[in-house]
Each structure stands twice: as structure tokens, then as C-alpha cells.
């Protein structure tokens, strides 16, 4: 097992499976926001750890790619390290922690702070692809609602938020309308990241357990749902980063001792490290 290339097909999955996933990806790109069913495979990791994202990544990787994997913005957490190691071994591709250098980025629950550019692919790990799931448990019914563009219920949820909390309290997995047609769950990214969904990069979403793939092509219009008198707001903790001083990046709250001391630091480790290397803060 020292040389993964002898034991596995390139990027672990067999070619027929990758072909099947690519067909689903092409369809997903052709119908932005539409959930395309695909025959999700068993992967050597538990559901909930990114089986969908890994399959999409495997289907997109080419030997020339440079892969970056982040988990909640960080390059050095278990999930990110494992998946990066997985593809380094089974595909032999180069890896990086620099957003700007990567050609393919697999992410769990964040969009990198560094603006993406054309030619990059961002792959999301999605736990529950159906934005209407918690409002309508029946799959047959949610499919019909998508088909008939019957999205009143989504606003009922936002209405309830305001009625109960005075503001739209949904702070992650904030529903968006893609290309004026499908309502989509952008995976549980913080709503701070929602404006970044309109991007020059290709964005692919893979849900392994739920067996769905969907996509947002480059430069597609993505609108966060809201009310005229309660407009969408991309919120974040009102602090600068304690390490790099950035005021424009999404922050994690870190408890530092038993007495409740805390600090706010960039959730995007690459962005934070890059700023510190440049001498900020």
C-alpha cells in the first residue's frame, strides 16, 4: 500500500462510475439549481463525512489538478486532512492549502474568502440537498413543488422567523433562488457566504447519502430569499480577527479557557495565514 497508484484506479472510483457522475454533473450544470439523482457509491468513509463531495471531486479530478480541501474554512482539520490525503494517495495529484493556487477545492460548509476565478471548481459536501425538506417531509411532494415552482412555503418559514425572532434568524443553509427558477439549499454555509455564490468559478454540490448532485454554473444569478421590508443580510460576528485583524472575513468563536474567555479568528485558515505573512496585524 505504499504506492496508491498500483492499488486503485485513478481517484479511487472506477471509470464507469466517474462517467455516470459526470453525466449527472453535466445535467446539473445545464439546469442550475436542479437536483439530479445519481447512483451514489459506498465510499471508504461514513456518510456525513463528505461522501457526496468526494465522489464529485473524484469525477472531476485530472492528473494536472492541484487540490485544496477545507472543512469549515480550515485546511488542517480531520476531515480536510483525510480527504486531501485520500486523493494524494489514490490520484497522486498535487495538493495545496492556497486558495489561489488550487484548481479544484472541496469544501465543507464554507466558501473561501479569497475570490475564486474562472477555471476553478468548488465542490461542496451537502448533508441534505432538499431546501424544502424540513417544511415538507414527502419527497414526492417536494419534487412536485420544484416542478411547479410552488415555493410559497419557503417564505412561510422566513415569515415564521421574523414573527418569532423579529428578524430572519436562519443563519446558515440560507435558501437561494438560482437563475430565477429553482430554490436551492447552498449546503450549510453561513449566510455570510451567500453573496459569494455568484462566482466566476464552477460550483458543484454532492450529497452522497441523499444521492443528489446539483450545480451553479459560473456567473449565474443567485438570489437569497427575503422580504421587501426585511431584506437579506450577510451577517457575521461583529469583531475583527484576533490573529490577522481582518474585518471582512467570517469568524469562528474560540473558547480559550474555563472562565469563558474567547477570541474571534478567521474561519478561513489560508486567508488568515496569508494576511499574517503579508505583515497585517
Amino acid at each position: 500500500m505504499t504506492d496508491g497508484m498500483q492499488d486503485y484506479n485513478f481517484a479511487y472510483l472506477d471509470e464507469e462510475t466517474k462517467r455516470m457522475i459526470r453525466r449527472a454533473l453535466l445535467k446539473a450544470l445545464a439546469i442550475p439549481g436542479y437536483q439530479v439523482p445519481f447512483a451514489s457509491r459506498e465510499m471508504p468513509m461514513p456518510y456525513g463525512w463528505g461522501t457526496g463531495g468526494v465522489q464529485v471531486t473524484a469525477a472531476c479530478l485530472v492528473p494536472e489538478d492541484r487540490l485544496k480541501v477545507i472543512d469549515q474554512g480550515a485546511d488542517d482539520t480531520t476531515n480536510a486532512v483525510s480527504i486531501r490525503g485520500f486523493f494524494a494517495r489514490t490520484a497522486g495529484v498535487a495538493t495545496t492549502e492556497r486558495t489561489a493556487e488550487a484548481t479544484l477545492i472541496q469544501t465543507r460548509h464554507r466558501i473561501p474568502e479569497t475570490p475564486l476565478r474562472e477555471g476553478q471548481i468548488l465542490v461542496y459536501q451537502v448533508p441534505i440537498p432538499e431546501p424544502l425538506r424540513f417544511l415538507e417531509p414527502r419527497e414526492t411532494e417536494t419534487r412536485r413543488m420544484h416542478a411547479l415552482e410552488d415555493y410559497g412555503l419557503m417564505h412561510v418559514k422566513l415569515y415564521e422567523d421574523i414573527a418569532r425572532h423579529g428578524a430572519i434568524s436562519t443563519s446558515y443553509a440560507y435558501p437561494v433562488k438560482v437563475a430565477g427558477r429553482y430554490v436551492m439549499d447552498p449546503s450549510p454555509i453561513p449566510k455570510f457566504d451567500n453573496p459569494k455564490l455568484e462566482s466566476p468559478a464552477i460550483q458543484l454540490f454532492g450529497a452522497g447519502r441523499e444521492q443528489r448532485i446539483y450545480a451553479v454554473p459560473p456567473y449565474t444569478r443567485v438570489v437569497s430569499l427575503d422580504f421587501e421590508d426585511h431584506p437579506f443580510e450577510a451577517s457575521k460576528p461583529d469583531h475583527p480577527c484576533a490573529l490577522c485583524g481582518a474585518t471582512d472575513s467570517y469568524l469562528d468563536e474560540v473558547i480559550t479557557d474555563d472562565t469563558g474567555a474567547r477570541m474571534f479568528v478567521c474561519s478561513d485558515t489560508d486567508y488568515c495565514a496569508g494576511r499574517r505573512a503579508e505583515g497585517a496585524a
Binding site: V156, Y159, A163, D229
Partner: peptide, 22 residues
């Protein structure tokens, strides 16, 4: 769903997007 949300659902289904008006 609250009583207000129940009554407002049909309005939102046909495109009402002003919370105050609903």
C-alpha cells in the same frame, strides 16, 4: 406554523413579499 403564517401562506404562494403587508 403560527396562525399568522397559516393565513399568510396563500398570499406568499402567489408572490406577496412584503412582511408588513402580509
Amino acid at each position: 406554523v403560527s396562525a399568522g403564517g397559516n393565513v399568510g401562506e396563500r398570499l406568499m404562494a402567489v408572490g406577496a413579499r412584503n412582511y408588513g403587508a402580509i
